[in-house]
Design a protein around this nucleic acid. Structure first.
Length: 389
DNA sequence: TCTGGGGTCCTAGGACCC
DNA sequence: TCTGGGGTCCTAGGACCC
C-alpha cells in the first residue's frame, strides 16, 4: 500500500444514535419522549379492544434478560445497555419494555450503510450500527461531507447519527461520542491535547474494565495521564505489546487501515437457560437444547456457505465461571449431526457436576463451502532447499 | 436482583517437526 | 542423548467490542 506521508488521512466514524430504540420508535411514535428499554424475550404489545396498544412495563419483568438499548429518557434514570432487566426495573419501573426485532434492525442497518456508500464507498463495517469511512480521497471539505452523510442517513432511515472526522480510526471513534446525539465532530492533531487528554482512559476503544482498573491502581485516570506515563511502568503491569499500544493510543497514534471486506472466523450459537440445569438431572432438556444449538449453527453455516474443522462448546456454570472445550477434525463439516457428534465429545471432557447456566456451540477454522479440502492457503512447495535437520 | 448473544484478537504451554 | 533453535498447530482462557 502506498500512502503519501505528507497527506494525513481523513477517517470518519459514524455511529447511529440509540439505534435499536430509534427503529422501535419509528414503529411506535407514541412512545417518543418516554423512557423505553429494548431487551428480554417478552412478546409484542397487546392490542386492546379499542385498537390501542398496551405496552409492557419494566416493573412486571421476571427473568434473566438484559437491556439491549435504552432511550435517552431511560438512560437519564440510570438504565444502560447490558444491565439486567430486573435491576433496571428497580431504577425505572414505569419504563416501557419492548422485545428486540433483529430483522428490522438489519433492514435499517442496510439502509443507512447504502446511503453512506452512495456518497463515500470506502466503508468498514463495525457491526449493525456503526461504520468507519475513509474519506481521504474525497475532495469535499470535512464539514460539508459530514453534513451530507448525516442528511443522507436521516433521509434514508428517519434516524439520526453522530459522526466524527479525524486523522485515524482511534480518534474518529472517540470523537463520534463527544457530541451525541446528532453529533458532528472534527478532530485534528491539535485537538488531542485539548479534547482527548481530559477524557477518562475508558473512552479509548480497547481499554475495557480490567485495564481501566489496573491503570487506576497506578493513579492513571485520564488519557493525558496515560500519555505522560513512562513506558517502563506500563511494561511492568501489561504485556509488552499492550503497553506500547496503550501509550500510542493515548497520543492519538493509530495506523490501522479502513478494511472494506473480511471473512468470518467463527460462527456460534449459545443460550442462557430460564433456570440453571444439571447435566444428569436435566439430561433430556439439556440434550434437546444442545441438539437445537447444533442445528442452528449448522443452518448458519449452510446459509452463509461455510464449513468448519474446529468444533467447540462453551459452558457457563451457576457461579458464572466459563469453560470451553474444542477439537479439530481432519476434514471440515457443516451438517448438524456431525457437529452434534463432535461437540458431544467436547462436552464429555468438561466438568459437569456443577449446575449450568449457559450452553453454546461454536464452529471455527472456517473455509468456504465447495473449496478443496485443506487448500485454504497456497500450497507450500516441498523441500525448497533440500533436506536438513 | 446477579450479566444476553454474537463476535475478534492475544497469550501461553505443549506436541511435534526439522 | 544434558540440551539448541525455529516453526506450526492445537487447546484453553481472558479481555474486549457491539
Amino acid at each position: 500500500m502506498t500512502q503519501n506521508v505528507s497527506t494525513p488521512r481523513r477517517i470518519a466514524h459514524l455511529d447511529m444514535d440509540m439505534f435499536f430504540a430509534g427503529v422501535e420508535l419509528l414503529q411506535y411514535p407514541q412512545l417518543r419522549g418516554l423512557p423505553v428499554v429494548i431487551g428480554g424475550r417478552s412478546g409484542a404489545p397487546e392490542v386492546l379492544p379499542d385498537g390501542s396498544l398496551k405496552f409492557a412495563r419494566l416493573s412486571n419483568y421476571v427473568g434473566r434478560g438484559v437491556v439491549t438499548t435504552s432511550t435517552y429518557e431511560a438512560r437519564a434514570l440510570g438504565v444502560f445497555s447490558a444491565m439486567g432487566l430486573m435491576k433496571s426495573a428497580k431504577l425505572a419501573p414505569d419504563a416501557i419494555l419492548l422485545p428486540s426485532h433483529f430483522d428490522a434492525y438489519k433492514h435499517y442497518s442496510r439502509l443507512f450503510k447504502e446511503a453512506v456508500a452512495a456518497i463515500a464507498p470506502h466503508i468498514e463495517d463495525r457491526g449493525i450500527d456503526e461504520i468507519y469511512i475513509d474519506l481521504t480521497d474525497m475532495p469535499e471539505a470535512d464539514i460539508m461531507l459530514a453534513q451530507r452523510i448525516k442528511a443522507a442517513v436521516q433521509s434514508a432511515t428517519g434516524l439520526s447519527c453522530s459522526i466524527c472526522i479525524a486523522p485515524n480510526k482511534l480518534l474518529a471513534k472517540i470523537g463520534s461520542d463527544l457530541d451525541k446525539p446528532d453529533g458532528l465532530t472534527l478532530l485534528d492533531e491539535n485537538s488531542i491535547a485539548i479534547r482527548i487528554w481530559p477524557l477518562a482512559v475508558r473512552k479509548i476503544n480497547g481499554i475495557g474494565p480490567k485495564a481501566t482498573q489496573k491503570l487506576a491502581s497506578l493513579d492513571i485516570k485520564t488519557i493525558g495521564e496515560l500519555a505522560a506515563t513512562d513506558i517502563h511502568l506500563l511494561q511492568v503491569h501489561f504485556s509488552p505489546s499492550y503497553a506500547q499500544w496503550l501509550l500510542d493510543a493515548a497520543h492519538g497514534r493509530d495506523e490501522r487501515p479502513v478494511v472494506t471486506s473480511s471473512e468470518p472466523k467463527s460462527l456460534s450459537r449459545e443460550t442462557t437457560f430460564e433456570r440453571d440445569l444439571h447435566a444428569r438431572h436435566d439430561k433430556e432438556q439439556l440434550g434437546a437444547i444442545f441438539t437445537m444449538l447444533c442445528e442452528r449453527v449448522a443452518d448458519d453455516l449452510k446459509r452463509k456457505g461455510y464449513v468448519g474443522r474446529t468444533i467447540g462448546i462453551k459452558l457457563r456454570y451457576d457461579d458464572y465461571s466459563i469453560v470451553t472445550r474444542d477439537c479439530s477434525l481432519e476434514t471440515p463439516i457443516q451438517d448438524a449431526t456431525a457437529i452434534r457428534k463432535a461437540a458431544g465429545l467436547c462436552l464429555k471432557r468438561a466438568p459437569l457436576s456443577q449446575k449450568l447456566r449457559l450452553l453454546g456451540v461454536r464452529v471455527s477454522a472456517l473455509s468456504r463451502e465447495g473449496q478443496t479440502i485443506g487448500s485454504n492457503e497456497a500450497p507450500q512447495s516441498e523441500l525448497p532447499f533440500g533436506t536438513d535437520g
